[in-house]
Design a protein around this nucleic acid. Structure first.
Lengths: 209, 209
DNA sequence: TTACATTAATCAATCGTTTGATTAACTTTG
DNA sequence: CAAAGTTAATCAAACGATTGATTAATGTAA
C-alpha cells in the first residue's frame, strides 16, 4: 500500500533525525541508522539515494513544517509591537522547544559553515523567521514603543542564542536550571514557562522607553 | 632540541584544533590533519597515542589556559556587583571572542551530550566560569543592587548563548550584523565592542531596580 | 506476469592504527 | 678523541576494520 510506504519512509526519517542529532552526520553510519530503524541497509539508498540524500530529506521534511508559522504577525495593525513581540516569544518557545532534537541537529549543521545547497536552504529558512522578528522591532522603534537606539541584530541573537544554549548543551543547562532538560515532562511544565517568562521580562526592560 | 619538539607538537595541536572545529571529530581524518600540519601520519599516534588522544590534547592545552581567568572577581569587596558584572562582560568578551575557533569546537562537543571523561572535564571547566558569574549575581541581589526576582540561570544562559549564536553560526550572524564575522579585523573593531556594549545595556536594564 | 519492495552478499574506498626500517643526535666506553 | 652503543624522531608501506554504495536474487501484491 502507498500508505505503508509513506509511513515507512517517515519512520526512517524519524530515526535518522534522532541518530544524526546524537552522533552528527559523519558519526552516524548507515548501518546504525538502518539497524535502529529495523530496515535493511539498502533501503536507505533505495528510498533516499544516498546517505546525504537521507540527511537532506530529514531537513526537507522539517523545513516544510516550519514554513507557515511565525508569519503574517508583522502585518497585523490591530495590536502594538510589544504585543507582537510577546506573541512571537510564545510561538517561538512552543515550536522550537518541542523540536529540540531537530534544533540541535540544525544548529550543529549551521556551525559547520559549509557552502552547500543544504546550508543555504537552512539559512534562508531561518532568515524568514528572523525577518519577521526584525520587522516587529523596526515597527516598535518607528511608532515610539521601543527605544530608538536598540541593537536589533543583537536582540535577535539574544533570543535565538539563549534558547540554543539551553537546548543544545543540556549538560550545562540541566545543573544550571536544577532540573533535567532531557525530560519531556520537565520541558513542558518548567522549561517552556521559564524561557517564555524570562525572554519577555528581559526584552521588555531593554526595549521599552 | 627540546624546543623544536614542543613547537612541533604545538603546531600539530594548532592545526588539529582548526580542522576539528571545521569538520568535527568524525569528519576530520588523521590523514587530513597530518597532511595540513605537514607531518607524517604516524606522528600523530607517536605523539598523542591515538586520534582521540589528539582530540583530548587539543582541549587539555586550552583548559589550562582558561584556568586562572575570570577568577577572584567575586571576592573583591571594593567594587559593587554591577561593576563586577561589567568587568566580567569585558573579560569574557575579550577572551572568548579571541578563541572563536576553539569555542565552536568546544560547544559542538558539548552538544554531543556524551558521558566521556572529556565531556565531564569540559563541563567542570565551564562551570567554574559560570560559578563566578553566579556569585556576582547573588551578591547583587543580596545588597539590593539587583532586583530580587531575577532569573539567575537564564541570565547566564543569555550571556553565553548570545555569544555562542554569533560565534558558532557566522552564516546567520554575518548577514544579520552586516559585516563578516570570520574577518579577524571586523571581530576586533566592530564585533567585540558591539557584544560588550549590548550585553551591558541588556543586563543593566534587566538586573537593576 | 509485471512492477515494486526487500534481502543477503559483495564492492571499492577510506578509516585509524601499526609496523619495520632509517636517520640524526646524544652517551658511553676504550 | 674516536668508536660503539643508545635513544627519540621520522618515514613509507601495509594492516584489518568499517564505511557508503551496489548488485543480483528473492518476495510480494496487483
Amino acid at each position: 500500500m502507498d500508505k505503508d510506504k509513506i509511513d515507512k519512509k517517515d519512520h526512517i526519517l524519524d530515526v535518522a533525525e534522532r541518530v544524526f542529532s546524537e552522533k552528527g552526520f559523519d558519526g552516524a553510519s548507515t548501518r546504525l541508522i538502518s539497524g535502529e530503524a529495523g530496515v535493511n541497509m539498502a533501503m536507505l539508498n533505495y528510498y533516499f539515494g544516498s546517505k546525504e540524500g537521507l540527511f537532506l530529506a530529514v531537513f526537507e521534511r522539517k523545513i516544510s513544517s516550519f514554513q507557515n508559522i511565525l508569519q503574517n504577525l508583522g502585518n497585523d495593525d490591530s495590536i502594538g509591537a510589544w504585543n507582537k513581540m510577546e506573541k512571537y516569544i510564545e510561538m517561538y518557545g512552543e515550536k522550537v522547544v518541542n523540536n529540540n532534537c531537530f534544533q540541535k541537529l540544525l544548529y550543529r549543521e549551521m556551525s559547520m559553515n559549509r557552502s552547500t545547497d543544504l546550508s543555504h536552504k537552512l539559512r534562508d529558512m531561518l532568515m524568514k523567521s528572523i525577518a519577521e522578528l526584525d520587522k516587529i522591532l523596526r515597527e516598535g522603534i518607528a511608532n515610539g514603543e521601543f527605544k530608538k537606539d536598540i541593537d536589533i541584530p543583537m536582540v535577535i541573537a539574544a533570543l535565538y542564542g539563549t534558547k540554543n544554549y539551553i537546548i543544545n548543551t543540556p549538560m550545562m543547562s540541566s545543573p544550571l536550571l536544577g532540573y533535567d532538560i532531557n525530560d519531556d515532562n520537565m520541558i513542558e511544565t518548567r522549561l517552556k514557562p521559564q524561557i517564555k517568562n524570562f525572554m519577555k521580562n528581559l526584552l521588555k526592560s531593554y526595549l521599552h522607553n
